[in-house]
């Protein structure tokens, strides 16, 4: 299943947040979304997932989601959004409980996704006992449990310290290599964008328009060992963003 955004414009009251945004997310691809603070990245993701309706334009699903997908558009949140009163396994199970699955099927899925995210031994642990990186792993496991057609990830690593971020980034790459999931990945971190993105969509400051769409052809598995070339891509992205970010910074100070 592909996603296609056509002429998305969005307002909050009189505030124009997004203007005429147009791009596509193809199946099996990670699309990174970068842009200065407040340019409407999170808003765009909410629109993509159907949590809000765009003022103008349309968001289309092209083709049917894969058979057995319980929740085609699935979020991974910056703050993890785990229920503190449920264990890791309980949090994963939560999103399956509304679907017609037998108890056994459910616990099989839970065990499976926890294993895929290397969490099996933490199944019965409460979130408060887990480190930030582990919490985000649980959230990713929960997202995988519903067999999403497209993951919508809003700065999933920015609440973590840099070492944990690096580890989890490697895990995400590995996960993608195994599962070829589709994702729209919002980030502030250009290094993340060039490590993960097949395509990087650069938004301008508010109202967010598309500055440029950068395709990165290098296969994901090679990127870890080609940091010099990635650095080049990263500098190019930074050049694109620099002025916007500076202008956005000053704008926010005015408000």
């Amino acid at each position: 299943m592909d996603l296609r955004l056509r002429g998305i414009t969005h307002f909050y009251g009189d505030l124009e947040v997004l203007r005429d945004v147009d791009f596509g997310v193809e199946a099996g691809q990670i699309v990174c979304l970068i842009g200065p603070s407040g340019c409407g990245k999170s808003t765009l993701l909410r629109l993509l997932g159907g949590l809000e309706r765009p003022a103008h334009g349309e968001i289309l699903q092209l083709g049917a989601p894969p058979a057995g997908s319980l929740n085609p558009l699935t979020y991974v949140f910056q703050d993890f959004a785990l229920l503190p009163w449920r264990t890791a396994a309980g949090n994963v199970s939560l999103v399956l409980e509304d679907h017609p699955l037998s108890r056994r099927e459910r616990s099989e899925i839970v065990a499976d996704v926890l294993a895929r995210t290397k969490l099996s031994e933490f199944a019965q642990v409460l979130p408060r006992q887990l480190s930030g990186g582990m919490k985000q792993r649980v959230a990713i496991a929960r997202a995988l449990a519903v067999r999403p057609a497209c993951l919508l990830m809003d700065e999933p690593l920015s609440a973590l310290d840099s070492q944990t971020r690096e580890l989890l980034l490697d895990d995400l790459v590995e996960l993608w290599l195994r599962e070829r999931f589709t994702a729209c990945y919002v980030t502030h971190n250009l290094a993340e964008a060039v490590r993960l993105g097949h395509k990087v969509v650069v938004l301008s400051r508010r109202p967010g328009r598309i500055r440029e769409i950068v395709e990165i052809d290098m296969p994901l598995e090679q990127r870890k060992h080609a940091l010099a070339e990635l650095q080049e891509q990263q500098s190019r992205l930074w050049e694109l963003m620099r002025e916007e970010a500076m202008a956005a910074d000053r704008e926010l100070a005015d408000v």
């Binding site: 997932g49 949590l51 509304d98």
Partner: peptide, 21 residues
Amino acid sequence: DRNLIRMGQSFGLSWLSIVRK
């Protein structure tokens, strides 16, 4: 936490499940 409720909605949980769980 509204984020938790958002999370529930984003996973397609029913209204009753969101209230109860």
